[in-house]
């Protein structure tokens, strides 16, 4: 596989703050790579060093074989960028903005205006940028990142501040871009977003990468248990018997809700239903909770990702 982005022992300090602390990672062609961490973790600092906007104090970075410090001009021809605080000229119209930015590249798309359609911005083509909604602005930002048909794209908190529907739409756009074979480096606060989109995830905290793997592996390595939760009338006598169900390690009862801790949620659920049938128990409000990347962060740092 071709390596598209390579960081080795990258360090960036601001006074006493070490914003990025000895980060090494490498991203392969076609991969969607996620950088997840809380506010101030160093995500923007790292991604902007890779984009040639900030200069590392230490370590080396390579993007498409180019050095972002020494070969910034060449690099900027070839990457697509959405900045965390994305904005273009407030009074420029969407269509004008896309054409203007396309004109800054040596090899722009043959027909950049087609991006309006790809990103469902056709009816906003003649609207001024400042009058767009947050979701529309983000779609313009994606369009601008695509005008030069880049091999690799950088998205810094693409969906922060969007409502759930706009977020889902944006996810579909990212998946479309991935399907075109492009490499994507994104940062996010949302573990569900990382799980949904990323082939691999790096968890960053206080400038340091504290875990890096596929979402599945990160969760599996946690060894955390799933939960099966339900309500049952007169379950007191049955509680002891729930413990005998497949894969259950522990039973907890809070008021009339029963929580089964299990190493295999599906197996437990199946047996539970059969068991209840046989005993003539009426179960209500059955839910399951599987461990996710949020639990990974909690376990690694002892803190919630977002307060």
């Amino acid at each position: 596989m071709t390596v598209i982005v390579e960081c080795e022992h990258v360090v960036k300090r601001y006074g006493d703050v070490i914003a990025v602390n000895d980060v090494s990672l490498s991203i392969e062609e076609g991969e969607v790579f996620g950088l997840v961490g809380p506010n101030g973790a160093g995500k923007t600092t790292l991604i902007e060093m890779i984009e040639s906007l900030r200069i590392p104090d230490n370590g080396s970075i390579g993007v498409l074989g180019l050095n972002p410090v020494k070969e910034a001009d060449e690099l900027r021809e070839k990457i697509g960028v959405q900045l965390q605080t994305t904005s273009i000229q407030p009074n420029i119209k969407v269509k004008e903005g896309i054409k203007l930015f396309a004109g800054l590249y040596r090899q722009p798309l043959a027909n950049p205006e087609e991006l309006l359609k790809t990103l469902s911005l056709e009816d906003k083509a003649d609207s001024r940028f400042r009058k767009l909604s947050g979701g529309q602005k983000q779609r313009v930002a994606i369009a601008l990142a695509l005008v030069n048909d880049p091999a690799v794209l950088f998205f810094d908190e693409l969906t922060t501040g969007l409502d759930p529907r706009a977020r889902k739409n944006t996810w579909e756009l990212v998946k479309d871009i991935k399907r075109q074979g492009k490499t994507i480096f994104l940062t996010t606060h949302y573990m569900e977003e990382a799980e949904e989109l990323c082939d691999r995830v790096a968890v960053i905290d206080f400038g340091k990468i504290i875990a890096l793997d596929t979402p599945e592996n990160l969760i599996r390595d946690l060894g955390a248990e799933s939960k099966v939760l339900f309500r049952v009338e007169g379950g007191d006598e049955a509680a002891a018997e729930f413990e005998g169900l497949a894969a259950v390690s522990r039973v907890e009862k809070i008021q009339d809700e029963v929580i089964l801790y299990t190493t295999d949620g599906s197996a437990t659920l199946q047996e539970l239903v059969r068991f209840a049938d046989k005993q003539g128990l009426r179960l209500g409000d059955i839910r399951t909770e599987f461990p996710d990347l949020d639990d990974v962060f909690l376990t690694l740092t002892g803190r919630e990702l977002r307060e």
Binding site: E51, S52, D73, R76, L83, S87, F101, L104, L144
Partner: peptide
């Protein structure tokens, strides 16, 4: 200052424009 505050300059800077 408006373009600087709204990060328009920064957005232009990450294009190849000199």
């Amino acid at each position: 200052t408006n373009y600087r505050e709204k990060a328009v300059l920064k957005r232009l800077r990450v294009t190849p424009v000199k």
